[in-house]
Design a protein around this nucleic acid. Structure first.
Lengths: 222, 222
DNA sequence: ATAATAGTGTCTGTAAGACATTATCAA
DNA sequence: TTGATAATGTCTTACAGACACTATTAT
């Protein structure tokens, strides 16, 4: 007898909007929880997908119109009661993308929710989001993870702001720059400067190409 | 139509033997890979198990005769080709236990393999073990994880040795003790001393009860 | 010049590692 | 007393954070 366990994947797609982390939610088109907002997800397709990472990429592409450069497995949530349809296993992935990427996709049923405002969600999705935030706070301390939230080019003050939003704390400017330099993942875009107002413009940087879709980690944190 | 995806769990059970990390392997009683040694694992049982963690505990109990105090989800391995039977998903957990626990269980088909000697194993089990070692090396730097490899009571020099085996590097004695003190997870067993030879005996410690089955983490590492 | 932010130099306190000293046991 | 290991005290060095100073732009 074949198993009747429901095999799905879900994706926590995060971005920064209005200086806070936001999560992408999608209005469900089918039961259960039809018309409720929930994490984008779907069944694993044995024919199309070579593994669950493939499934996650497919769901992001078809349901959100997004191809994220970085996608990491978070954890697997399973159990008899988390889905009203029955025993289910959901392999959860998370991705970080700049806001522009989400806005460019312009998916009709998608919406961005401030992670501090997310209260009740279908299934165990609220808990999944909390776990993701913990993981990101942790990794932001000693890796280039938050860089994926920045656009193609960015300034150091902007990048520091992104790190501060991820970590939920102010950072020391000198220490921050020392760490970024030590990490050695960004390079100056020669000649360009950001002109934001009546003050000194900042230098423009971009991720070095090996780290556009790969994490770099440090021994000790920020 | 019901899914035909194979839903399993596997467990990486680690211990220290002869001053090196060893992994518990079990001779497979059924195909595929019958009679080959592989990680203990099995199908998720919808009726008996409330979630995959339950499945892992059940497998460890029934196949290995062990009830580990600490069991953590490692990662989920999935795909079309990792299992000759077809598309499969395996949620992998890992546990650390003192050697005595494994020896006391005395499971006939079990064997302990030095992690440096593990070369080829069925499925993607060799890769799974490598991933586990990475996770442990990482967590040993800033948590009480290696304490689960120690017996009920232990000395500080013995605990340092365990940390050194996990991290694969020598540690500074003073720094190590400072960190353990800061972590505040162990307490002296009053009056007792270890008598190992013709030299000063060491004080005996044990894990504080809240940390017998729970991890404690530090902000910064060893 | 002024205001505002970008970027850098330097000092200080803290914490980790190296080293040395003292303690405690059996033979 | 000696030899071996346990435990702790102290010095040195490295690094993170605080602060201040310089740089660069528009008005």
């Amino acid at each position: 007898m074949k198993s009747s366990i429901i095999q799905t994947i879900d994706v926590v797609l995060l971005t920064i909007k209005n200086s806070t982390l936001h999560v992408a939610l999608l209005k469900r088109e089918n039961p259960p929880f039809q018309d409720h907002y929930a994490l984008p997800g779907g069944y694993v397709h044995e024919q199309e997908d070579n593994d669950c990472l493939d499934s996650a990429l497919r769901v992001l592409k078809t349901k959100m119109g997004i191809r994220p450069p970085y996608l990491e497995q978070l954890e697997t949530f399973s159990g008899k009661y988390r889905d009203p349809r029955g025993w289910s296993v959901s392999v959860v992935y998370f991705a970080l993308v700049p806001l522009e990427v989400i806005e460019a996709a312009n998916t009709p049923l998608a919406s961005l929710a401030d992670i501090d405002d997310v209260k009740e969600l279908p299934f165990d999705h609220a808990e999944i989001i909390k776990t993701t935030i913990s993981r990101i706070r942790n990794k932001a301390q000693y890796s280039s993870l938050p860089c994926f939230l920045a656009g193609e080019t960015f300034t150091l003050p902007a990048l520091q702001k992104i790190y501060e939003i991820c970590l939920n704390e102010k950072l020391n400017k000198v220490s921050f720059r020392r760490k970024i330099a030590e990490m050695d993942v960004i390079e100056e875009v020669a000649g360009q400067l950001s002109r934001q107002g009546a003050y000194r413009p900042a230098k423009i940087y971009k991720l070095k190409s090996p780290y556009l879709d790969k994490l770099k980690t440090l021994e000790s944190g920020l």
